[in-house]
Design a protein around this nucleic acid. Structure first.
Lengths: 185, 185
DNA sequence: GAGCTAAGCGGACCGTGGTCCGTATGGCTT
DNA sequence: AAGCCATACGGACCACGGTCCGCTTAGCTC
């Protein structure tokens, strides 16, 4: 990547972050970001592909931390704790991660529906599948993982907390319950 | 509703159905429907609110039939069979319903993500909640229903069958497994 | 440092969903 | 039959995501 491209990339990310901070995620239009970074609109698209790509780039740092925490962090989230315990912690961590970035993720989702195969989800599926197997769950663990991870969804989280008035605590308890039901033999 | 409005409504629905049949769901743009019905674009929006509304109207008949089948149809889907058996049948019926209208539903979904509260989903949640209680499942049945219904999602179905190459049979088996795990005590 | 070329840039342009508002008319009242 | 007005119409208009392509420039080569 050429120097000017790298510079523009960081300028765009900074401008985008500033926009979100000052005016909310809804004002994060591609044109506004371009203008705020004093750059052409085409440049934004070349750097990030599309709106979802830009948002993913914005969340990248947080996503890495989150991912590391369950892949190699301390127990009970990371390795060292029994698999079911890790699964419980994973769901809670994920719900909180989603809640923290809810605003941004929701404005990205329209595109992401089609992108149910985007990288973060893949990682979650793989992780849950591994934990289920480790826990000795038999049957179609891959599909079971898909079902479980579907519960850990921003849109669902948003719907249940905002529209249906459920607390995050309740969702977390729901996850514990779900894991317990699925893993007991 | 005035007579001309009613006439335009049916003309629009016919035009939309024709468009989908002839050129696929992707060509179902609001402007194309308006043109095909020889009507102004504004009229389409007034009648159906937005694109999702139009698509829901298009699927309304099928949705009613589907809904009736599990609310008052013959067992094991309808009343008469034991609740767990009905739950199993419900999932299979829903997966097939979704698969049948996949194309149309997918092009509507972008909007529908925000609309996790749209009527059909409500009905499904209510139904599953009732069956879980009837089956003697204790705990947060409402939330458990949300988790189960999240598995019955067009976008997920599409992803798993097209992108991951799973068969519909496998998804149905996965539902049976899920129900078994959740309801056993 | 001149010349070359791939990489990058930017903004005009397009399609689509959705809004708005001035105009037309169905159909009720008298 | 005439008058009235709520209802409905239609298309110009807007915002935004995304594409395209002719122009610019970083930075390597000689």
């Amino acid at each position: 990547m050429r120097a000017d491209a790298a510079r523009n990339r960081t300028r765009l990310l900074e401008a985008a972050a500033r926009l979100v901070a000052e005016r909310g995620a809804e004002c994060l239009t591609m044109e506004a970001v371009a203008a705020a970074a004093s750059v052409g609109k085409g440049t934004v698209f070349r750097r990030f592909g599309d709106r979802t790509g830009l948002i993913m780039a914005l969340l990248d740092r947080s996503e890495r931390l989150y991912q590391e925490s369950f892949l190699s962090g301390p127990p009970p989230l990371g390795p060292g704790a029994p698999p079911v315990r890790r699964l419980e912690a994973f769901g809670v961590a994920t719900l909180r991660h989603l809640a923290a970035h809810r605003e941004l993720l929701l404005t990205a989702e329209p595109e992401a529906c089609r992108r149910l195969d985007f990288a973060p989800r893949h990682a979650r599926i793989a992780h849950v599948t591994a934990l289920l197997r480790e826990a000795g769950v038999d049957g179609d663990t891959e599909l079971l993982a898909e079902a479980l991870v579907s519960y850990l969804d921003v849109a669902l989280l948003h719907h249940l907390t905002e529209r249906r008035g459920m607390s995050l605590d309740r969702l977390e308890a729901g996850w514990h319950d779900l894991v317990a039901r699925v893993t007991r033999d």
